[in-house]
Design a protein around this nucleic acid. Structure first.
Lengths: 200, 200
DNA sequence: GTCTATAAAAGGATAGAC
DNA sequence: GTCTATCCTTTTATAGAC
């Protein structure tokens, strides 16, 4: 295993700290103390703190499969169950953090009110990558869902459910709010599958 | 009309600035310049910046009817249409801000990662007040919805949809993401209403 | 209750030696 | 590429006169 470069160390530390504390509440000093680097090393690689954020968002976007999808989907083949397994994966994160932490992208998206275009675009690209993965599952479900269903819109709605459910679970410090959101989505899927059966 | 007290001026300015810029990005100096007050006046009323936040959250919670529900519901009687009118009200805010600003409570809920218990409780109470209003609409819909439907869980799901849709619309700077989320919720409601008809 | 001035600390970023 | 020291700005909050 090769030694981690300063760049990798900083990105990994920033992914965790931005997730735990948010962007504004994570100081450069926090990143330095976590990585045991000096400010010269950080600023040699990243001209500004915002460049660290850009690196984080690029890393998350480019590694959504190994960092999120593969761990969530281990062994699961059914395309619709993969969607709910992804949601269950977020549930584990909620519970393990005592309902304190949610989706790293969603938190950043609402924390940064007037992000630079580059940052905003990367946030959107992360949502896009997530939605694309779910959309592929929905397409994989074939005739189990109505033929005229807008599968891209439904994929976005899965993300909507996840983000809205995480937000309420965090705020109430009660994973039940996330569970009930997922339950409602399950119920909607059941209607859609029933409609596909009857319509076929 | 009586002159606005310093306290009222600060709360109103803070509601707007926290919505526009967020809590951390709004400085006490911002509040002073917006209200034309001096720091002595602010700190005489609010011992700390966080106390301003508490005042804001209490004001929003205690005035949800005049500040949100009544403007959204003007003239609408149908309980289910009231729910979608509430969502349409948020849509106006999204469009008028060029997809920059969303729900003030949701933004604060995700910006503040480790809020004081008092603040977190007030955020949750705001969600609760919102959900209660929607739940009353769902109860008002009576037999148009299935008798065994968990109306509280569905009310929470309406909030889930709103918050998740707002987040994506803001991030993509495209209200279409909000619209498609609402469309999916409409579709779910259509299934529920159909199930109530058939089951009756 | 309100005014001005300022303290005290934190945070992002840079300089220049090595 | 990395080290230490430090500059500069912003920000929360306070002091003490009026």
């Amino acid at each position: 295993m090769p030694a981690q470069s300063p760049r990798e160390k900083i990105i990994m530390a920033a992914i965790e700290l931005f997730w735990l504390k948010g962007y504004n509440s994570t100081s450069v000093a926090d990143l330095l103390s976590r990585t045991q680097l000096n400010s010269g090393s950080l600023y040699h690689v990243f001209p500004s703190k915002q460049d660290v954020l850009v690196g984080v968002l690029e890393t998350l976007k480019d590694n959504i499969s190994p960092m999120l999808l593969e761990p969530a989907w281990g062994g699961i083949e059914d395309p619709i169950e993969k969607i709910f397994a992804l949601l269950a994966h977020y549930r584990v994160g909620i519970v393990e953090s005592d309902c304190s932490y949610g989706c790293p992208i969603g938190s950043l998206a609402l924390e940064l009110h007037e992000p630079d275009p580059q940052v905003r675009t990367l946030l959107a690209a992360n949502f896009e990558a997530w939605t694309n993965a779910v959309e592929q599952c929905l397409r994989g479900a074939g005739s189990r869902l109505p033929a005229n269903l807008d599968r891209r819109a439904l994929a976005q709605f899965v993300l909507t459910t996840m983000e809205g459910g995480v937000m309420q679970a965090r705020t109430h410090r009660d994973v039940g709010y996330f569970d009930r959101a997922v339950d409602q989505l399950r119920s909607y899927f059941a209607f859609l599958e029933e409609a596909a059966r009857v319509g076929a």
